[in-house]
Protein backbone atom coordinates (compact mmCIF):
# COMPACT_ATOMS: atom_id res chain seq x y z
CA UNK A 1 0.00 0.00 0.00
CA UNK A 2 1.47 3.41 -0.92
CA UNK A 3 2.61 5.42 2.10
CA UNK A 4 0.22 8.29 1.50
CA UNK A 5 -2.76 5.94 1.21
CA UNK A 6 -1.74 4.16 4.40
CA UNK A 7 -1.37 7.50 6.16
CA UNK A 8 -4.81 8.70 5.02
CA UNK A 9 -6.38 5.41 6.04
CA UNK A 10 -4.61 5.46 9.42
CA UNK A 11 -5.71 9.01 10.21
CA UNK A 12 -9.25 8.21 9.08
CA UNK A 13 -9.33 5.27 11.49
CA UNK A 14 -7.89 7.47 14.24
CA UNK A 15 -10.62 10.01 13.48
CA UNK A 16 -13.44 7.46 13.52
CA UNK A 17 -12.23 6.15 16.86
CA UNK A 18 -11.97 9.66 18.29
CA UNK A 19 -15.38 10.48 16.83
CA UNK A 20 -16.92 7.42 18.52
CA UNK A 21 -15.56 8.63 21.87
CA UNK A 22 -17.13 12.04 21.28
CA UNK A 23 -20.42 10.48 20.18
CA UNK A 24 -20.59 8.41 23.37
CA UNK A 25 -20.25 11.60 25.42
CA UNK A 26 -22.58 13.64 23.21
CA UNK A 27 -25.40 11.06 23.05
CA UNK A 28 -26.51 11.71 26.62
CA UNK A 29 -26.41 15.45 26.09
CA UNK A 30 -28.51 15.28 22.96
CA UNK A 31 -30.99 12.84 24.53
CA UNK A 32 -31.66 15.20 27.44
CA UNK A 33 -32.00 18.18 25.14
CA UNK A 34 -34.21 16.28 22.71
CA UNK A 35 -36.68 15.19 25.38
CA UNK A 36 -36.47 17.99 27.94
CA UNK A 37 -35.21 20.90 25.87
CA UNK A 38 -32.58 21.44 28.53
CA UNK A 39 -28.79 21.59 28.54
CA UNK A 40 -27.03 19.53 31.20
CA UNK A 41 -23.79 21.24 32.25
CA UNK A 42 -23.08 18.46 34.76
CA UNK A 43 -22.78 15.84 32.04
CA UNK A 44 -18.96 16.02 32.03
CA UNK A 45 -18.90 15.11 35.70
CA UNK A 46 -21.08 12.06 35.14
CA UNK A 47 -18.50 10.99 32.55
CA UNK A 48 -15.70 11.46 35.10
CA UNK A 49 -17.60 9.51 37.74
CA UNK A 50 -18.07 6.71 35.20
CA UNK A 51 -14.32 6.70 34.58
CA UNK A 52 -13.48 6.55 38.30
CA UNK A 53 -16.08 3.86 38.92
CA UNK A 54 -14.63 1.74 36.13
CA UNK A 55 -11.10 2.34 37.43
CA UNK A 56 -11.85 1.32 41.01
CA UNK A 57 -14.16 -1.54 40.13
CA UNK A 58 -11.68 -2.98 37.61
CA UNK A 59 -8.52 -2.48 39.63
CA UNK A 60 -9.84 -3.20 43.12
CA UNK A 61 -13.13 -5.04 43.17
CA UNK A 62 -13.13 -7.24 40.08
CA UNK A 63 -9.42 -8.09 40.11
CA UNK A 64 -8.58 -8.29 43.80
CA UNK A 65 -11.87 -9.26 45.44
CA UNK A 66 -13.49 -11.39 42.73
CA UNK A 67 -10.16 -12.58 41.30
CA UNK A 68 -11.21 -12.05 37.68
CA UNK A 69 -8.72 -11.79 34.81
CA UNK A 70 -7.88 -8.22 33.77
CA UNK A 71 -9.90 -8.24 30.54
CA UNK A 72 -13.03 -9.63 32.21
CA UNK A 73 -12.60 -7.21 35.11
CA UNK A 74 -12.45 -4.25 32.74
CA UNK A 75 -15.49 -5.38 30.73
CA UNK A 76 -17.41 -5.87 33.97
CA UNK A 77 -16.33 -2.42 35.15
CA UNK A 78 -18.12 -0.88 32.16
CA UNK A 79 -21.42 -2.15 33.59
CA UNK A 80 -20.49 -0.85 37.04
CA UNK A 81 -19.81 2.56 35.48
CA UNK A 82 -23.17 2.56 33.69
CA UNK A 83 -24.88 1.56 36.93
CA UNK A 84 -23.11 4.28 38.91
CA UNK A 85 -24.05 6.87 36.28
CA UNK A 86 -27.68 5.73 36.24
CA UNK A 87 -27.93 5.70 40.04
CA UNK A 88 -26.38 9.14 40.38
CA UNK A 89 -28.63 10.49 37.63
CA UNK A 90 -31.69 9.08 39.42
CA UNK A 91 -30.67 10.54 42.78
CA UNK A 92 -29.78 13.98 41.46
CA UNK A 93 -32.95 14.16 39.43
CA UNK A 94 -35.03 13.20 42.46
CA UNK A 95 -33.24 15.57 44.81
CA UNK A 96 -32.54 18.59 42.60
CA UNK A 97 -33.91 18.67 39.06
CA UNK A 98 -37.43 17.27 39.58
CA UNK A 99 -38.38 19.60 42.46
CA UNK A 100 -37.17 22.59 40.45
CA UNK A 101 -39.01 21.45 37.33
CA UNK A 102 -42.17 21.02 39.37
CA UNK A 103 -42.10 24.74 40.12
CA UNK A 104 -42.55 25.33 36.41
CA UNK A 105 -39.38 27.36 36.04
CA UNK A 106 -37.13 26.43 33.10
CA UNK A 107 -34.15 28.57 34.10
CA UNK A 108 -33.60 27.16 37.59
CA UNK A 109 -33.01 23.53 36.50
CA UNK A 110 -30.51 24.85 33.96
CA UNK A 111 -28.60 26.80 36.61
CA UNK A 112 -28.90 23.83 38.94
CA UNK A 113 -26.94 21.71 36.45
CA UNK A 114 -24.04 24.18 36.84
CA UNK A 115 -24.29 23.89 40.62
CA UNK A 116 -24.38 20.10 40.43
CA UNK A 117 -21.33 20.19 38.17
CA UNK A 118 -19.30 22.27 40.64
CA UNK A 119 -20.47 20.07 43.50
CA UNK A 120 -19.52 16.82 41.77
CA UNK A 121 -16.18 18.16 40.55
CA UNK A 122 -15.10 19.34 43.98
CA UNK A 123 -16.52 16.25 45.66
CA UNK A 124 -14.36 14.09 43.40
CA UNK A 125 -11.37 16.34 44.05
CA UNK A 126 -11.79 15.83 47.79
CA UNK A 127 -12.33 12.10 47.35
CA UNK A 128 -9.76 11.15 44.72
CA UNK A 129 -7.23 14.00 44.90
CA UNK A 130 -5.76 15.88 41.93
CA UNK A 131 -2.86 13.59 41.01
CA UNK A 132 -3.54 11.82 37.69
CA UNK A 133 -4.46 8.15 38.01
CA UNK A 134 -2.91 5.53 35.80
CA UNK A 135 -5.91 3.73 34.32
CA UNK A 136 -4.79 1.25 31.69
CA UNK A 137 -7.26 -1.17 30.22
CA UNK A 138 -5.80 -4.55 29.21
CA UNK A 139 -7.09 -3.78 25.72
CA UNK A 140 -4.85 -0.71 25.48
CA UNK A 141 -1.78 -2.95 25.68
CA UNK A 142 -2.73 -4.98 22.59
CA UNK A 143 -1.92 -3.30 19.31
CA UNK A 144 -3.38 -4.84 16.18
CA UNK A 145 -1.35 -4.34 13.00
CA UNK A 146 -2.54 -4.79 9.42
CA UNK A 147 0.43 -3.91 7.26
CA UNK A 148 1.21 -0.28 8.01
CA UNK A 149 -2.10 0.27 9.77
CA UNK A 150 -2.30 -0.08 13.52
CA UNK A 151 -4.92 0.36 16.20
CA UNK A 152 -5.29 -0.77 19.77
CA UNK A 153 -7.81 -3.36 20.90
CA UNK A 154 -9.21 -0.58 23.11
CA UNK A 155 -10.04 1.57 20.08
CA UNK A 156 -11.77 -1.40 18.46
CA UNK A 157 -13.72 -1.92 21.67
CA UNK A 158 -14.73 1.76 21.70
CA UNK A 159 -16.04 1.58 18.13
CA UNK A 160 -17.93 -1.67 18.80
CA UNK A 161 -19.46 -0.43 22.07
CA UNK A 162 -20.38 2.92 20.49
CA UNK A 163 -22.12 1.08 17.64
CA UNK A 164 -23.96 -1.15 20.12
CA UNK A 165 -24.98 1.83 22.26
CA UNK A 166 -26.24 3.75 19.24
CA UNK A 167 -28.08 0.70 17.89
CA UNK A 168 -29.55 -0.13 21.29
CA UNK A 169 -30.73 3.40 21.88
CA UNK A 170 -32.21 3.60 18.40
CA UNK A 171 -34.06 0.32 18.87
CA UNK A 172 -35.30 1.43 22.29
CA UNK A 173 -36.62 4.73 20.96
CA UNK A 174 -38.25 3.24 17.86
CA UNK A 175 -39.52 -0.14 18.94
CA UNK A 176 -40.43 -0.05 22.61
CA UNK A 177 -43.44 1.48 24.30
CA UNK A 178 -41.25 3.56 26.62
CA UNK A 179 -39.18 4.82 23.69
CA UNK A 180 -42.27 5.83 21.78
CA UNK A 181 -43.64 7.50 24.89
CA UNK A 182 -40.37 9.44 25.26
CA UNK A 183 -40.66 10.64 21.68
CA UNK A 184 -44.23 11.68 22.37
CA UNK A 185 -43.09 13.71 25.37
CA UNK A 186 -40.37 15.36 23.27
CA UNK A 187 -42.94 16.34 20.64
CA UNK A 188 -45.63 17.71 22.92
CA UNK A 189 -45.59 17.21 26.66
CA UNK A 190 -49.16 18.32 27.29
CA UNK A 191 -50.72 16.15 24.61
CA UNK A 192 -48.59 13.21 25.73
CA UNK A 193 -49.93 13.73 29.24
CA UNK A 194 -53.51 13.77 27.91
CA UNK A 195 -52.79 10.40 26.26
CA UNK A 196 -52.01 8.93 29.69
CA UNK A 197 -48.22 9.15 29.45
CA UNK A 198 -46.51 9.85 32.77
CA UNK A 199 -44.33 12.79 31.79
CA UNK A 200 -42.59 13.08 35.17
CA UNK A 201 -41.57 9.42 35.11
CA UNK A 202 -40.33 9.60 31.54
CA UNK A 203 -38.22 12.69 32.15
CA UNK A 204 -36.62 10.92 35.10
CA UNK A 205 -36.00 7.92 32.85
CA UNK A 206 -34.37 10.16 30.25
CA UNK A 207 -31.93 11.50 32.83
CA UNK A 208 -31.16 7.99 34.05
CA UNK A 209 -30.49 6.74 30.49
CA UNK A 210 -28.37 9.79 29.65
CA UNK A 211 -26.39 9.40 32.89
CA UNK A 212 -25.84 5.70 32.22
CA UNK A 213 -24.54 6.63 28.77
CA UNK A 214 -22.20 9.16 30.41
CA UNK A 215 -20.97 6.41 32.75
CA UNK A 216 -20.42 4.15 29.74
CA UNK A 217 -18.47 6.92 27.99
CA UNK A 218 -16.39 7.44 31.13
CA UNK A 219 -15.49 3.74 31.37
CA UNK A 220 -14.29 3.73 27.77
CA UNK A 221 -12.60 7.13 27.98
CA UNK A 222 -10.83 6.38 31.28
CA UNK A 223 -7.95 4.42 29.74
CA UNK A 224 -7.58 7.05 27.01
CA UNK A 225 -7.75 10.34 28.86
CA UNK A 226 -5.77 11.70 31.79
CA UNK A 227 -7.87 10.48 34.71
CA UNK A 228 -8.34 13.30 37.22
CA UNK A 229 -11.52 14.82 38.72
CA UNK A 230 -11.49 17.22 35.75
CA UNK A 231 -11.20 14.55 33.07
CA UNK A 232 -14.69 14.95 31.65
CA UNK A 233 -14.35 18.67 31.13
CA UNK A 234 -11.61 18.10 28.56
CA UNK A 235 -14.06 16.47 26.16
CA UNK A 236 -17.32 18.17 27.05
CA UNK A 237 -16.70 21.38 25.10
CA UNK A 238 -16.20 19.37 21.94
CA UNK A 239 -19.25 17.27 22.77
CA UNK A 240 -21.34 20.45 23.00
CA UNK A 241 -19.93 21.59 19.65
CA UNK A 242 -20.89 18.21 18.14
CA UNK A 243 -24.43 18.45 19.50
CA UNK A 244 -24.80 21.91 17.93
CA UNK A 245 -23.24 20.92 14.60
CA UNK A 246 -25.43 17.82 14.46
CA UNK A 247 -28.60 19.71 15.26
CA UNK A 248 -29.52 20.17 18.90
CA UNK A 249 -31.37 17.13 20.15
CA UNK A 250 -31.00 15.18 16.92
CA UNK A 251 -29.39 11.79 17.40
CA UNK A 252 -28.53 10.99 13.80
CA UNK A 253 -27.01 14.46 13.45
CA UNK A 254 -24.98 13.99 16.62
CA UNK A 255 -23.54 10.69 15.38
CA UNK A 256 -22.59 12.12 11.97
CA UNK A 257 -21.15 15.29 13.53
CA UNK A 258 -19.17 13.31 16.12
CA UNK A 259 -17.47 11.13 13.51
CA UNK A 260 -16.94 14.17 11.26
CA UNK A 261 -15.27 16.16 14.06
CA UNK A 262 -13.09 13.18 14.94
CA UNK A 263 -11.88 12.82 11.34
CA UNK A 264 -11.37 16.57 10.95
CA UNK A 265 -9.35 16.56 14.16
CA UNK A 266 -7.09 13.73 12.98
CA UNK A 267 -6.40 15.42 9.65
CA UNK A 268 -5.88 18.81 11.29
CA UNK A 269 -3.13 17.21 13.38
CA UNK A 270 -1.60 15.70 10.25
CA UNK A 271 -1.67 18.69 7.94
CA UNK A 272 -2.15 21.86 10.00
CA UNK A 273 -0.90 21.06 13.50
CA UNK A 274 -2.56 19.89 16.67
CA UNK A 275 -2.49 23.40 18.10
CA UNK A 276 -5.15 24.37 15.55
CA UNK A 277 -7.69 21.65 16.40
CA UNK A 278 -9.96 23.88 18.46
CA UNK A 279 -9.73 26.67 15.90
CA UNK A 280 -10.81 24.38 13.07
CA UNK A 281 -13.62 22.71 15.04
CA UNK A 282 -15.07 25.98 16.27
CA UNK A 283 -14.80 27.66 12.85
CA UNK A 284 -16.88 24.72 11.62
CA UNK A 285 -19.32 25.31 14.46
CA UNK A 286 -19.68 29.02 13.64
CA UNK A 287 -20.00 28.29 9.92
CA UNK A 288 -22.73 25.77 10.70
CA UNK A 289 -24.58 28.27 12.87
CA UNK A 290 -24.34 30.91 10.15
CA UNK A 291 -25.23 28.73 7.16
CA UNK A 292 -27.41 26.03 8.66
CA UNK A 293 -28.50 26.99 12.18
CA UNK A 294 -30.61 23.85 12.49
CA UNK A 295 -27.51 21.67 12.29
CA UNK A 296 -26.51 18.93 9.86
CA UNK A 297 -29.89 17.23 10.11
CA UNK A 298 -32.62 19.82 9.79
CA UNK A 299 -34.55 20.18 13.01
CA UNK A 300 -37.95 18.59 13.01
CA UNK A 301 -38.73 18.16 16.64
CA UNK A 302 -41.05 15.23 16.18
CA UNK A 303 -38.19 13.23 14.70
CA UNK A 304 -35.39 14.35 16.93
CA UNK A 305 -35.23 11.52 19.39
Amino acid sequence: MPDILALVLQQTLNGVYLGCLYVLVALGLTLIYGVMNQINFAHADFVTIGAFTAFFSASRLATHVLGLPDATAYLLSIFFAMGAGALLGYLINAAVFAPLRDRGDELRPLIATIGVSVLLENGQLALFGPIPYSFDSPFTQHTLRLGKIFFSAQSLLVVVVAALAIGGLHAFMRHTYLGKALRAVSQDRETAGLMGINERYLIGLTIVIASALAGLAGALLGPVIVLTPFAGSSVIVKAFAIVIIGGFGNMEGTIIAGILVGIIEAFTVQYLGSGLIDLVVFVLLLAMLAVRPTGLIAERREENV
Binding site: D3, L7, Q10, Q11, N14, G15, Y17, L18, L21, S155, L221, V224, I225, V226, S234, V235, V237, E265, A266, V269, Q270, G273, S274, G275, I277, D278
Partner: peptide, 20 residues
Protein backbone atom coordinates in the same frame (compact mmCIF):
# COMPACT_ATOMS: atom_id res chain seq x y z
CA UNK B 1 7.46 21.21 15.87
CA UNK B 2 4.19 19.84 17.24
CA UNK B 3 2.40 21.79 19.94
CA UNK B 4 -0.77 20.74 21.76
CA UNK B 5 -3.31 22.21 24.16
CA UNK B 6 -3.93 20.89 27.66
CA UNK B 7 -7.30 19.52 26.54
CA UNK B 8 -5.79 17.01 24.09
CA UNK B 9 -6.43 13.47 25.30
CA UNK B 10 -5.82 11.11 22.44
CA UNK B 11 -2.32 11.42 20.99
CA UNK B 12 -2.69 8.71 18.33
CA UNK B 13 -3.07 11.21 15.44
CA UNK B 14 0.10 12.98 16.58
CA UNK B 15 1.98 9.68 16.86
CA UNK B 16 0.74 8.71 13.39
CA UNK B 17 2.04 11.96 11.96
CA UNK B 18 5.46 11.42 13.53
CA UNK B 19 5.61 7.82 12.33
CA UNK B 20 5.02 9.11 8.79
Amino acid sequence: RIDFGRDVNDFTPIATRIAA
